[in-house]
Design a protein around this nucleic acid. Structure first.
Lengths: 153, 153
DNA sequence: TAGATAAAGGTCAGAGTAGGTCAGAAAAGT
DNA sequence: ACTTTTCTGACCTACTCTGACCTTTATCTA
């Protein structure tokens, strides 16, 4: 059974299949899914983040809207560099999962590579307590991106 | 006389006969057997471990679930299991490289997966000093082997 | 035209829902 | 009696959803 958030996510993605940029109205969408408007913000925040390759812009006031753009980077090297720069000295599990998911969606890594990487940056695998864990994760992931640049760049 | 745990075990196994992957809800199941939810975790831990050929994944929050996968053990999986058991609580870089190399030679992982894994268990990627580094590496690698069991099973 | 009102969207705390962990009590073996 | 296994409950963590309150922009009206 899919959650409300999952359904809204699916709906937005289906819109993005026809067009890489779409405009939605928050209240209308909330109405369609019979939920509170801020639910839409929650979905955008958790599923359409920059790490996942989306840009969100919005405009308030009368005739306001939310614009969602799916970035499609043609040159992988650029994407890898960008992702690399998103990672600072620390990164949490959620963000790192988003980055790995992105690499998969852009065909830079295979499905099983995705699984392996997620396993590697998983908090239980690293097994340290914070903040050491987030620091190790950042290093692991940065090194992986470097390897990917060498291999697939 | 069968214990509660035995009964829950039997029930889960009967579900797994129809499908090698099932999703359950912890609270519902606990309800069905009139026990506390953590009893389910106990059963999963004692009867559905990796060593016994099962993989457990779960998701919290609304619409949360526990996913149980039964692995069909074949030759590769036996190898993976053996490698798994070789790894203790600590493993150094050299040993881990030979395990990864072995996985590659047995066609369990691809060339690029090999590169990624080596990057991950590399001492610079982990970046800690000994013995913490070898401990983290052991955990990482064990979890990777579990993932491989799930993926390539 | 300034000020009021309406019409968007944004933020954040907290309730709700679901699973995880761990120590210790209880029961079952030996 | 002692050891191992089972079972429970208290407390923890993760994800979802709502509602109250806030900001921005457009439009209407005195």
């Amino acid at each position: 059974m899919k959650s409300l958030s999952d359904n809204i996510e699916d709906y937005i993605k289906s819109l993005l299949e026809a067009n890489s940029t779409i405009k939605i109205q928050r209240n209308k969408l909330a109405d369609k899914f019979k939920c509170v408007p801020s639910q839409i913000n929650y979905v955008l925040k958790t599923r359409f983040s920059v790490e996942r390759g989306y840009i969100i812009e919005s405009y308030r006031g009368g005739n306001g809207y939310i614009k969602i753009t799916k970035l499609s980077l043609d040159i992988n090297q650029n994407l890898i560099n960008r992702l690399y720069n998103i990672i600072g000295n620390y990164i949490n599990q959620k963000q790192s999962f988003s980055i790995i998911e992105r690499l998969f969606e852009e065909d830079i890594i295979s499905f099983s590579e995705k699984s392996l990487l997620k396993t590697m940056v998983n908090r239980d695998s690293i097994g340290l307590s914070l903040p050491a864990r987030d620091k190790v994760r950042a290093r692991l992931l940065k090194n992986v991106l470097e390897t990917l640049l060498r291999e697939k760049g």
